[in-house]
């Protein structure tokens, strides 16, 4: 049973087509990355799912049911910016969140502790730094320990230590079996945690599914020898090597399947080419993403 299922969802703002017939499912237990450059429709998509935006056409379900307020209460959501009453303290704001979510106020102390805000819980929200506001929003998301989380750019405004903390928090939550829908344009962030992805570009869904199935991120070798020209020629004859290019002082060899570095080393030695460097590397999600969004 998918936690979220979208069927042909479209949305237009005047002349701008923000989403065009987007369809995909988010399976239970997945860490689902919604990727795309700024303006690709990620927040619009999540806005529709959380009922703050109205789709022009298409439908969606939450927990396999028509989405209503009751379904939304089972989801912890951080959409865009942290939205709180400026004149109230962090603690009092969370009391309001708990009341709306119909969760116990007894959980507030726990989520404040997780997000490192216990010491400042009674300060007014307007006195918080950007990072603290973001952490309060995360605390609100975690109230009542929901099974599904929707996080739209959750590391916005955080310093490097805060980013690492949030990433660690997401991993820990994922380990407990929660479903997490994570929208981000920071691919490094997504690469480290996601099991599934949907990639959007100018409102169009380019692809979606399990990361390993939908994104071909073949390993490649980075090699160097005394004569890189000979090295390149030899690699082009190696079975499974689809390309070899000289890139500065190294040769980048790409393969149709994961290469066996030891076998390549032996093969080159037989040809009298002695390697000075041999590194097995994985293509970054960023590089793959740029290839996908530029080609499709």
């Amino acid at each position: 049973m998918p936690v979220l299922s979208l069927q042909n969802v479209s949305k237009r703002y005047g002349a701008l087509q923000a989403l065009s017939g987007v369809t995909f499912d988010v399976p239970r237990g997945a860490i689902f990355g919604v990727l795309g450059p700024n303006g690709s429709g990620k927040t619009t998509l999540l806005g529709i799912v959380t009922d703050v935006l109205k789709a022009d056409s298409g439908t969606y379900t939450l927990f396999d049911r028509t989405a209503t307020a009751a379904e939304r209460r089972q989801i912890g959501t951080l959409l865009e910016t942290p939205n709180f009453y400026h004149y109230l303290s962090g603690y009092k704001n969370l009391r309001i969140s708990a009341a709306v979510k119909q969760r116990s106020e007894a959980d507030i102390a726990r989520v404040l502790e997780i997000c490192g805000l216990t010491a400042r819980q009674h300060s007014a929200f307007k006195t918080y730094s950007l990072g603290m506001k973001q952490r309060l929003a995360l605390a609100a998301v975690l109230l009542g320990d929901p099974e599904v989380l929707i996080l739209d750019e959750p590391t916005n405004g955080l310093d490097p230590a805060g980013i690492a903390e949030v990433r660690d928090l997401i991993r820990r939550l994922a380990d407990t079996g929660k479903t997490i829908i994570l929208a981000s344009h920071l691919l490094d962030e997504v690469e480290k945690v996601c099991t599934h992805v949907a990639i959007l570009k100018t409102g169009q869904l380019l692809l979606s599914g399990a990361v390993n199935e939908v994104i071909s991120r073949n390993d490649y070798l980075e090699l160097s020898a005394a004569d890189n020209g000979a090295l390149k020629a030899a690699m082009l004859q190696y079975p499974g090597c689809t390309s070899a290019e000289i890139n500065g002082a190294t040769v980048i060899a790409i393969f149709s399947a994961t290469p066996d570095a030891a076998a390549v080393n032996a093969y080159l030695a037989e040809k009298g080419i002695w390697l000075q460097q041999l590194l097995l590397r994985k293509k970054s999600l960023e590089k793959t993403f740029l290839e996908i969004t530029n080609v499709l």
Binding site: F84, Y85, A140
Partner: peptide
């Protein structure tokens, strides 16, 4: 208008109020 200024009208809906509520 406070709800619109602080965007808490959106947050109330996101968190589980029906628009009617």
């Amino acid at each position: 208008t406070n709800e619109y200024t602080f965007r808490t009208n959106r947050q109330n809906i996101i968190d589980g109020w029906d628009r009617k509520e």
